[in-house]
Structures are given as C-alpha cells and as structure tokens.
Design a protein around this nucleic acid. Structure first.
Length: 431
DNA sequence: TCTGGGGTCCTAGGACCC
DNA sequence: TCTGGGGTCCTAGGACCC
C-alpha cells in the first residue's frame, strides 16, 4: 500500500515576507496579486480578522488601515527561491517527490525506515527541519492516497483529529476516519470546487463522509470520471500516481493587466512584444517549438458602463519556431488585425500553442532547409537567454518591447530580492 | 482610481473518414 | 418497428487546481 505525505507551507507568500523583516512578526501581512489587485496570501493575523482570500485590495482599504495591515506586492523571485530551498530539504526525506505547486509537495513514504513514533514522528521531523533551516512553518498530511493526503493536510492545519501540524490517516481506525469525515464539508476535498459543491449539495451530499460513501457509478454518470476517481481515492484506493518528472507544458501563456488603461496601438504593441518575448523564453527553457501563436486584448470587464471590446486570434505558423523575432512578428501582426481604436484596453495576452520538442523540427516544404538559418537563430536565442539570465530579465530585448513602458503593472510595495539580488541583501544594524 | 496569472483535464458536438 | 458501424480529429466550453 502506498503512503503519501503532502507537505504544505503555511501562508507561504506572507511567511516569506515576514521571514526577512522581524518587525512584521505578529503583525497582519497580506501579499497582493499582480498590479496590486487582489489579496492572494494572508498571514494568520489577517485570517483571524476574517478577511477573505482573493478580495480586491481597494475594497478593504479602510479595514486594512484600521488594523494596520501591511501589504506587499508579489515578489515571485523571492517566493520561487524559498520554494526551491524547501524542496531541497524535502528531498532529503524521501527519494520520490512531486513538486505540486510553489508551496506544496507530495512525498512517497512507503518502505522508508521510520523513527520510533512512526509516520507522525517522521512528519514532525520534516516540520522541525524546515523550521530550523529555513524559518518557515509547514504542515504535513499523511495517507494512502493523494486526495486523502490533501485532506489530512487540511486536518493538520486546522488541528483536527488531535493533530499538531502533522495528521496521519493511516494511524486512524475506519470508525475514527468516518467520524472525522462527518465533520468536514465536502467542499474541502481536492477536486470539489464551487460548482460541484453546489451540485452535490442539491443531491444531499454535504460532508466528506457522504461523498466517500456515494455510489461511484452514479457519481460518474452524474458528474464525470474525475469525480468518480475522487470517490475511490477517498475510500483509500490510490488512483493518482506521484508525478516526479514535470511534463513539458502543452501551452504557454503570458498575460497582464496594465498599470493604467491603454488606448494607443503603439503601446499595446510594446506590451504584446514583451509578453511574447517572455513566452518564448519559457518555450526555449523547456526546449520546445511553437506551432501556433495567439494574441488577445480586452477592455475592463469590471466596468460594464464603458464600451467593451475583446478579441483574440490564433494563427498557425508556416514553420514551428522558438525564435523571439519571428514569434514577435506574428503576435504584433495579430494585434494590428484585432486592434480597434477608441477603446480603453485593460489587459492583453499571448499564448504559444501546438508545442513540440525542438528535436523533431519539421521543415517547410517551400523554403525551410533547416540549415544555416535555424542554426544562427538557435545561437542568437542562446546568447539572448544567457545575457538575460546573467544580468536580469529584459536586460537585452527587442526594440519593439519599448523603453519607458508606462503600461507596466503597478507594484507599489515590492520587498527586496533578499536571496536573489546582491543589492537586496538584508542589512543587520548593531545597537 | 483601484478587481491576478497561470495551468490541466474532460466532455460534447461537429466534420470527416472508410 | 425498422434507418450501419465503426473510427479520428478538432474546437469550444466548463470544471478544477494553486
């Protein structure tokens, strides 16, 4: 029988911000989404105030002021770096590990030599080491399926089933599990979102226990094979394997809301050019080529009172490529086709589709020889990526991406790159 | 004034094939 | 009453996750 652990960092982004700023200890801290739009992470103090996840920041200004909430813009460089360190520590605990998201990893624990105290002690050891070495708090859920491990993690966080940061379902009897599942809302289950929650409620299924004991065939018929699999996983039958190798992306998207409304085609072109450059960089980092490009623009959908317009177009490319110059040309061509003057644009995006490994390049019947041209392009892109890796993203870019770039997103309170930038090192003053 | 940015998978339906 | 029987591929839309 497999044993999975799900290790999840508590209030991850907010914890990262507190880590290098001791003055923030015990203070309410939130981290905002791009453009300082919504609250995407809350410290324990903020959760205690009842401020919900995802609320637009501007809507809680007064409350924030009243409680002295400190808000940070998203500092992904910092969070990604700390996330890598967490994974480094975890890989010392289990050879088989899946990095599920920036703050969660699944570990396969079956067959490992366990300390006295068994799996719970093992989980406690993980918690202790991450606290000691990184200063971050994590919770650990342990169970025979990934869905149950997620649920056990929820219990660990809420202190259910007597858990203190670690919850091990394999140590509970069937009756104890049933009693526990009776107290947990079905919406907490991995794979049950808002819509399915509502439909389940209409069928009278409100608790985890009820979903576990529902008939899998009926669930498949009324919903899908996905939710049927969830039911089986809740019963302890492992249906979802550990995915240790990250599969190549099938599509790559880059989109941003603008710092202010954009009306000008020139400005939109700059934005689209810089998004496609970033997308192409991601494309090359997984060693793929794109066979199609999409670009889209839209006005502010939150303001129905202003004239609305949105449009996106996808074009298949004559020959798959990872060359920023070519992709940029197509994206801007699309943009010029879909652009309508007289609107205030709020957001634009690009997508690379029909991705394939760079190894099996298909040459165009008409002119592609796959010879000198492609080799020169590969070399040039390698130089571009090398320079940007060394000197920072965007150090070397196409002129089309613009210079002052006034459309860029707002990041009103960005913390330093404490671990990724020499100039961002934390300073300790004596006395 | 101010409302994120990525991804995946599944299903249904239509076009088309023999 | 009966109206062939398989398939594939593509797209759009909807659900989910963090």
């Amino acid at each position: 029988m497999p044993v999975f652990a799900l290790v999840d960092c508590n209030n991850f982004y907010a914890s990262c911000e507190k880590l290098f700023n001791p003055r923030l200890k015990d203070r309410p801290v939130v981290v905002l989404s791009n453009n300082d739009g919504c609250v995407v992470a809350r410290s324990a103090e903020v959760k205690a105030l009842g401020i919900p996840m995802g609320v637009p920041w501007f809507k809680i200004q007064e409350e924030a002021k009243r409680h002295g909430i400190v808000a940070f813009s998203s500092n992904y460089a910092l969070y990604a770096d700390l996330s890598n360190r967490v994974v480094d520590v975890l890989s010392g605990f289990a050879p088989n590990l899946e990095v599920y998201s920036i703050d969660e990893s699944f570990l396969e624990l079956s067959g490992l030599p366990l300390p006295e105290g068994g799996l719970v002690a093992y989980g406690a050891g993980i918690r202790q080491r991450i606290a000691d070495w990184l200063g971050l708090a994590v919770c650990v859920g342990i169970a025979p399926t990934k869905t149950l491990a997620k649920l056990a993690n929820h219990c660990a966080k809420k202190g259910l089933a007597g858990a203190d940061g670690v919850c091990d379902f394999t140590a509970l009897t069937r009756d104890e599990l049933t009693a526990l599942f009776e107290r947990i809302a079905v919406g907490e289950v991995w794979g049950v979102g808002r819509k399915i929650d509502a439909r389940l409620a209409a069928m009278g299924i409100r608790t985890v226990r009820q979903l576990r004991d529902a008939d899998p065939e009926t669930i498949r018929f009324r919903f899908s094979v996905v939710l049927e699999r969830t039911v089986r996983e809740l019963r302890g039958i492992s249906c979802i394997d550990l995915e240790e190798v990250v599969p190549d992306r099938q599509q790559i998207m880059v989109s941003r809301s603008f710092g202010h409304l954009v009306t000008d085609l020139d400005e939109l072109e700059e934005a689209v050019a810089s998004y496609i450059a970033r997308a192409a960089e991601k494309l090359r980092s997984q060693n793929s080529l794109a066979g199609a490009v999409q670009a889209y623009v839209r006005t502010n959908i939150f303001k129905p009172e202003v004239p609305q317009y949105q449009r996106g177009v996808t074009v298949p490319l004559p020959e798959a490529t990872a060359d920023t110059r070519i992709l940029s040309g197509w994206a801007r061509r699309i943009l010029r086709r879909i652009y309508r003057p007289g609107f205030g644009y709020h957001k634009a995006g690009v997508m690379l589709l029909d991705l394939r490994p760079a190894g099996n390049r298909q040459f165009s019947l008409l002119d592609g020889q796959g010879g000198a041209g492609d080799a020169r392009s590969d070399k040039l892109m390698a130089v571009l990526d090398g320079i940007n890796q060394r000197y920072g993203r965007g150090s070397l870019r196409l002129a089309a991406e613009g210079v002052d770039r006034s459309w860029r997103m707002r990041r009103g309170n960005l913390s330093p790159g404490y671990t990724t930038d020499w100039m961002g090192l934390a300073v300790v003053r004596a006395g």
